[in-house]
Each structure stands twice: as structure tokens, then as C-alpha cells.
């Protein structure tokens, strides 16, 4: 009987049907989705930290306003995604508090790029341009996800990402048009971020979990396909603004139709994500703990205020 149920579910997936939160789904499907969306939600929130560091230091008022808007968007995306994760986690008896506790206890990972330092304004530019650019590629690749609540939220997120894309380009164009020291600052930022951005898409090997996600039509592209799409889009533009990509092995292999590049240090970056040992991991988690635990009394007081009002 459970086998028949699973088979009927897979038939729905193969017909291209979308799954809703209240539909029956195999535990495996639920857990894979939850892991993906939980990490996505938490990465949106942790992704706001490197950028928020630049809000007080932004070079102009306009830059400050747009950066604040972006930070607000990232937190907003986190909220939308958390709702999707919560509905998946509810049958497992887990709620938002627990999903956020997981950041502090290290039970949920967040993207490698958000463990890094952003020491100069050019880093803020590279984050907006290339880190967001990479994230946009992975997110648009999920728009056809078989899980409808996730796909709907991604549609809204991608619409806002189009602003992020322009915002990042605007910052790096200003620096590229600027004085030699500004172009140098931009080049140094690119040197710092390149390997991390390549790692962002994940290892080229198709893991068992990735294969299952493709069977379930949660995702349809491999890590390597997405990295290749990123390189095709961004390498010519990076070169066009006069920047040098810090990888002498990078070239397009016409015959294979593939970019060849020096592989990032998979093991070192995996440890950064798994063990939260990047240069900024602990500092940002501490900020998250402060928001989550030290402000908990506010959340409780709000509910108490409502109860009191009803009485």
C-alpha cells in the first residue's frame, strides 16, 4: 500500500503536476525539500550580514538607501522562505523557533560566501554583482520546482532580485569608471571572491541527494550546469570592465563546449560551511544569536499583549 501511494505520487511528478503543502508526499521528498528550503531561508538571512556591515559606511546617501533596501529584501526573502519551510516541518513537529535555533547550534548550514569578510566597498559591489548573480542563476533554475509553495515564493524573490542585479552592476560600474586605485580595489575584491563564487554552486559530482531531487523534479540542473551558465554569462562581462580573473587555467573549451577552470578547494570550503570556521562565521552567528535569543522577550510580550487585550 505505501508503495502504491508512492508510485501514484511519482506519477503526478512525471505528469508535471505541482505538489501543495497539504498533499501526501513521501518522507524522502519532504526531507529533501525541507533541507533545501531551510538552508535557502537561512542563507538569505545570513546573507544580509556582510551587506549590512556596509550600510553605515556606504559612500553616498543614495548608495546607503539602496543597500538598506537590499538588506531589507534579503530578510524579507528569508521570512517568505521560512514560511514554506515551516509548513513542511510542521508534520515533523518543528516550528520557526527550532528552524532558527538550528543556525545557532550549527544544525543548518548557510552558503559559503556568507562566511567571508567584506573589507572594502568593492567587496560590497562584488557581492551585489557576482554573489547575487550566482544566487540568481541557482534560484531561477528552481522556478519550475515541483513543490508549488516554493515555486511561488521564488517567483516573487526573482522579481526583486532583478533590482539586486542592477544595484550590483551600478556599484562595480562606478568603480570601473573611477580612478586607478578604485579599479585596483575592485580587482582585489574579485581576487578575494572568485574561488568562493565557484564553490557556491557546489561540487561537480552529482550526489545521491541531488539525483533524487532531480527525480522528484525539485531541481532540474546539476551544480556543474549552473556553474557553466554563470561562467558564460559573467566571464565576458568581468573582462569587459578590465578585470582579470584570478585563474590562469580559465578558458572556454570550444570542442567540449565547456569552461575549464581551476577547481576550488572543495574540502577546505566544505569545512567552512560544515563547521562554521570561515573568517566571519562565528561573529555573524553571534549577531544572529543576539537577535534570536536576546530579543525573544519581545516576541513573547507581543503575544502576551494580545492575550491581555482579549481578556
Amino acid at each position: 500500500m505505501p508503495e502504491a501511494r508512492r508510485e501514484a505520487f511519482m506519477a503526478r511528478i512525471r505528469r508535471g503536476e505541482k505538489i501543495e503543502a497539504h498533499d501526501w508526499m513521501p518522507d524522502d521528498y519532504r526531507l529533501l525539500l525541507l533541507r533545501l528550503i531551510h538552508m535557502h531561508a537561512v542563507s538569505e538571512i545570513m546573507g544580509a550580514y556582510p551587506e549590512k556591515e556596509w550600510v553605515p559606511k556606504a559612500p553616498t546617501l543614495r548608495r546607503k538607501m539602496s543597500l538598506m533596501a537590499k538588506v531589507q529584501d534579503e530578510i524579507g526573502h528569508g521570512q517568505l522562505l521560512l514560511r514554506v519551510a515551516e509548513d513542511l516541518a510542521a508534520p515533523l513537529g518543528r516550528d520557526r523557533m527550532e528552524l532558527m535555533d538550528d543556525v545557532i547550534t550549527g544544525r543548518v548550514k548557510f552558503h559559503n560566501v556568507f562566511h567571508m569578510e567584506a573589507p572594502t566597498w568593492a567587496d560590497a559591489g562584488i557581492i551585489g554583482w557576482l554573489v547575487d548573480g550566482a544566487a540568481i542563476i541557482t534560484q531561477t533554475a528552481l522556478l519550475d520546482c515541483s513543490y508549488a509553495p516554493y515555486a511561488r515564493v521564488l517567483k516573487r524573490i526573482c522579481a526583486e532580485e532583478s533590482f539586486h542585479m542592477q544595484h550590483g552592476e551600478s556599484i562595480i560600474l562606478s568603480l570601473a569608471e573611477g580612478e586607478p586605485w578604485q579599479r585596483e580595489m575592485l580587482q582585489e575584491a574579485l581576487n578575494r571572491w572568485w574561488e568562493a563564487i565557484l564553490f557556491f554552486f557546489g561540487p561537480p559530482v552529482v550526489t545521491d541527494a541531488a539525483r533524487r531531487m532531480m527525480e522528484y523534479r525539485i531541481r532540474s540542473r546539476t551544480n556543474e550546469e549552473l556553474r557553466q551558465k554563470f561562467l558564460t554569462r559573467y566571464v565576458p562581462r568581468i573582462r569587459a570592465v578590465g578585470l582579470e580573473i584570478p585563474d590562469s587555467a580559465l578558458r572556454f573549451d570550444e570542442e567540449a563546449g565547456l569552461w575549464r577552470y581551476t577547481e576550488p578547494d572543495w574540502e577546505r570550503w566544505s569545512r567552512v560551511v560544515r563547521e562554521n570556521i570561515g573568517p566571519k562565521s562565528q561573529e555573524r552567528i553571534a549577531l544572529r544569536r543576539m537577535a534570536h535569543q536576546d530579543q525573544a522577550w519581545v516576541r513573547e510580550a507581543l503575544v502576551r499583549a494580545r492575550t491581555a487585550a482579549v481578556v
Partner: peptide
């Protein structure tokens, strides 16, 4: 930690001539 918020479904009306349209949900204390 044991405080739980309710889920609210949100409907937005863009203009006088548009109906309220469901846009998503959120958690709120009231």
C-alpha cells in the same frame, strides 16, 4: 521559545478596481 505565532494568509488590493489577491502568508502575534 514556546511562544507560537499564528499563520495569517495575506490578500492585497492593488487599486479600487482590483479585487484582493492572495500573495502569501506570514507569522504574526496578532
Amino acid at each position: 521559545r514556546h511562544t507560537s505565532y499564528d499563520v495569517y494568509e495575506i490578500f492585497v488590493q492593488a487599486s479600487d478596481l482590483d479585487p484582493h489577491v492572495h500573495v502569501g502568508s506570514l507569522l504574526a502575534p496578532s
